[in-house]
Design a protein around this nucleic acid. Structure first.
Lengths: 223, 223
DNA sequence: GGTTGGATAATTGGATACAAAAATCCAGCA
DNA sequence: TGCTGGATTTTTGTATCCAATTATCCAACC
């Protein structure tokens, strides 16, 4: 709710940043479908600027893996193939595994309480059919990996979460994930409570790698 | 030796690509030092183009973590603090660990021979004091992680190698690494020969994480 | 009827020009 | 002598313009 407003207020930032956030948001919620061409002029006039900052935003989106950029061929929404989705989950598993290993000694009672609260919110969002479930789920993971206090690690994991977000939304529509999610994430909390970093790492890796097999329904038309 | 030529021949590609490769190369060999400001006009006239493609190249370099970009403040070479170097090695350890886990079943006699040959070349480059040692070392790792056949994983690992390359060069000047490198990498080969993916993963993780502690001499002035 | 080739239109890439922001410098003041 | 404030200079960000590349469409030919 803050996002759509911020763009018009020009509060903090440059046009390029605005274009980047605008497009990232649009891609995250799946407004554009994989394979769609992003026409600079369209987007530029939509946000009220020229093509130039939009072009630069494209570069950043490409670096995030959200779009594909080919010389003289424009900008295309980067649909992920099943293999690519699987790969992202593989990478996430070791990255978030590392993060949770580093986070384990830093857990406090307050943070455990926060995680439990989020689990409740996830469940509620899931039952109401709200798409917020995906965001709550991301938040749950973010609380943990943010504790690692490794900026680059956090940035990379976050980028992966953003890249798979539209697929998570679709997945949420297909299978009713939230039902099994509760106990799965409870297992994660239990592993963290054990205080054993290696154990927590293993559990996180298994938790993440278990997911993509269930995503098999949604493949992208092209890249 | 092909690099300096390709830029003048305009063989394949756009100006932005040229600027990107030019700057990446310059940053890899340490031509610019951490904290240096990169002035678009300077670089533009140097390669013979306008500021625009250079600006876009900056974006890509920033995504790679090679430079830092702040609004209205220009482009600064991203010096890595010791903490950041350590973090990159941590990330490398799990990423290349995953890669070697996937690569282990794909090893062939030919590839083992290639690795052994590279080990020889590394040693020779090390003894002659040539900076090529860093490149040979990267190649050694690349042969292994390329076998994983995971494009995104490979891309990420490669980006990390590029980011730490100047530090590896300096490190190579300080401590005479190549002496101990031979047996360290031989251990890696042995682990791969064992055929046990988990074991190879563990050995790779330990191999990588052992490195940054020795890099403690070179800290960057600022970020 | 299907395919190839060329002319035309649309789109992208790059250069220049202009506006806005930041850094610098210098004068005035305490 | 050191600090503050404002004008100037420098640098960055955005828009517009032009060139180059690619896509489209239609006609001629096989």
């Amino acid at each position: 709710m803050s996002g759509s407003f911020a763009t018009s207020v020009h509060l903090a930032s440059t046009a390029e940043q605005e274009a980047y956030l605008h497009l990232q948001q649009a891609l995250r919620i799946g407004r554009y479908k994989p394979g769609d061409r992003l026409i600079p002029e369209e987007i530029a006039s939509e946000i009220g600027m020229s093509r130039m900052p939009v072009r630069e935003a494209f570069r950043r989106l490409a670096a995030d893996g959200l779009v594909t950029l080919r010389p003289n061929r424009g900008c295309v929404v980067a649909g992920l193939t099943l293999d690519e989705i699987h790969e992202i989950f593989e990478i996430r598993s070791v990255l978030e595994g590392l993060a949770v290993r580093l986070a384990t000694p830093k857990m406090t009672t307050e943070i455990f309480e926060e995680l439990e609260r989020l689990l409740d919110r996830m469940e509620r969002a899931g039952k109401s059919g709200s798409n917020d479930w995906v965001l709550r789920h991301q938040e749950f993971h973010a609380i943990i990996f943010n504790l690692s206090e490794r900026p680059k690690l956090i940035r990379q994991i976050t980028a992966l979460h953003v890249a798979i977000e539209p697929y998570m939304r679709i997945w949420f529509d297909y299978v009713n994930k939230p039902l099994s999610a509760r106990e799965e994430h409870q297992t994660l909390i239990d592993a963290l409570r054990s205080g054993d970093p290696s154990h927590a790492e293993t559990v996180m890796q298994e938790h993440i790698i278990a997911t993509p097999n269930l995503l098999a329904d949604y493949a992208s038309p092209r890249r």
